[in-house]
Amino acid sequence: MTDIKKTAGEQGTPPAGPEAIKAIPVRHYGRYVSAVVALALLVAIVYAFSQGRINWGAIPDYFFDDRVVEGMGKTLLLTVLSMAIGIVGGIVLAVMRLSKNPVTSSIAWFYIWFFRGTPVLVQLVVWFNLGLVFEYINLGPVYKDEWSDFMTPFLTALLGLGLNEAAYMAEICRAGLLAVDEGQTEAAHALGMSHGKTLRRIVIPQAMRVIVPPTGNEVINMLKTTSLVSVVQFSELFRVAQDIGQTSGAPVEMYFLAATWYLILTSVLSVGQYYIERYYARGSSRSLPPTPWQKIRAHLTTLSSRKVSA
């Protein structure tokens, strides 16, 4: 806040002492040309889409359709729950992988090797068809049912995405834990802190700065990957859009509708990610980067002061 005002003030008043340099800036003609070409291409593409045989009017008609809103809710629910499984599983796997016990670290290695090495679409289909291996699920007196009744589309989707995500999150968490300077652990141990306290109070908060940005990417990726679970009959946003498309006779239009909703959701998530990163950056740099709103205000003040000085 204060430093924004300072820079604005510096720009507003010309420096004292020797006269400021007034020179004619270099003209970059190449930049003008490339800008014109890029704009022309953009206009051509937009025009082509507007002239295509697509009934754009159908999109607003279904944009807030009950089925679409419900599908979106399921997409979000699936994203949140499978990321939760992924993050918790990832932390556990990362700690296992870094443990001194060769058995636990090998198991973690094997898990990551398997789930990262096979496509998530294949994993989903396998989960769905695991009834061929396990005909019944029998947890003694607690629960007993046929596999096909137990493994609902929702559970298939959740396990398929969550367990796959855990493998990726494990590698992200491991990188974060390893990025913290060893001196931090030593200092904490020298103060008499136990291993657990050192991890929780000293190492993990610092590892978060490394873990959060890629995790934000994973969340956004997960939101989009949920569209794959349409193959296991789970009616999330993409599946709903497909269904409406087939019944209403506007299949392509509904794909555009889904794409628009995905874009809106990922944009909202990106903004959230920015603020979370800003929170974990505290203490790592001397002053926090300005929020977009602060940036806009800074630009406005410099613009107005430039006008005044000119």
């Binding site: 300077d181 001196g183 931090q184 030593e186 200092a187 904490a188 020298a190 103060l191 008499g192 000293i202 908060p205 610092q206 505290r282 203490g283 790592s284």
Partner: peptide
């Protein structure tokens, strides 16, 4: 707990 240590590279907790 009873032994304090000061390091060459300070090792303060940056967060």
């Amino acid at each position: 707990r009873d032994i304090g240590m000061v390091f060459q590279r300070f090792n303060l907790f940056p967060h």
